[in-house]
Computed example of a mutant assay.
Amino acid sequence: MANLLETAAKSGDFKILLKAIQATELEDTLDSEGSFTIVAPTDAAFEKLPSAERDALFANIPKLKRIVLYHVVMGNVQAEDLAEIDEAPTMEGSILAVKRANGKIHINDALVDRTDILADNGVIHTIDTVLMPAILEHEYD
């Protein structure tokens, strides 16, 4: 099995997220032996953001790094775990809310499209929205 970054690259759905991981120099962290869960916005999720906002994120590497880390949870949190928990602490330091309704899982306001894309060092769940930590809304204005 491949690691998280190799698995994400093979899927072809995470080009923008992988570009963000590279820009923030988090490859070594997410390539490491630890166990991580990435709540991964697809390229379509990133494309929901206005292009000026996307460009601004890549121009502000500290903010982009916080956003990337907000999508990473320590440990291997699979779909069966998501069905049992109400929140998950992120590597960024904030907490993600996990909600279930009508047979669907939401993380904050994002719909989990696909679960349990397994890798050697963790698992990926795809989401349809880029998550923003609340603390960032005014911190980098």
Rank of each mutant, 00 (worst) to 15 (best):
L4D: 00
L4V: 08
L5G: 03
A8Q: 15
A8Y: 15
K10I: 05
K10C: 04
S11F: 03
S11W: 14
G12Q: 00
G12F: 01
F14C: 07
K15P: 07
K15G: 02
L17Q: 09
L17D: 01
L18W: 15
A20L: 10
A23W: 02
E25S: 02
E25W: 09
E25V: 13
E25N: 07
L26K: 03
L26R: 15
E27P: 07
D28E: 14
L30W: 03
S32K: 05
E33L: 12
G34T: 00
F36G: 01
F36D: 00
T37P: 11
T37H: 06
T37D: 06
V39Q: 09
A40D: 05
D43N: 06
D43M: 05
A45P: 06
A45N: 02
F46T: 10
E47V: 15
L49D: 03
L49G: 02
L49S: 14
L49N: 06
S51C: 04
A52L: 09
A52I: 14
A52Y: 08
E53Q: 12
E53Y: 05
R54D: 01
R54G: 07
R54T: 15
D55F: 13
F58V: 01
F58M: 07
A59M: 08
A59S: 04
I61G: 03
P62G: 03
K65D: 00
K65S: 11
I67C: 07
V68M: 02
V72F: 11
V72Y: 00
V73Q: 13
M74I: 10
N76D: 08
V77P: 09
Q78L: 10
Q78Y: 07
E80G: 06
E80C: 05
A83C: 11
E84M: 09
I85K: 11
D86R: 13
P89V: 15
T90C: 06
M91W: 04
M91K: 14
E92Q: 15
S94M: 09
I95M: 13
I95Y: 11
V98E: 09
K99A: 00
K99P: 14
G103H: 15
G103N: 09
K104T: 09
I105E: 03
H106P: 04
N108T: 00
D109K: 10
A110I: 06
A110N: 06
A110G: 01
L111T: 10
R114T: 10
V123M: 07
V123D: 02
I127L: 02
I127D: 08
T129C: 11
L131K: 04
P133H: 05
L136Y: 05
L136A: 11
L136M: 13
L136E: 12
E139M: 05
Y140T: 01
Y140H: 13
Y140N: 13
Y140K: 06
D141R: 13
D141L: 01
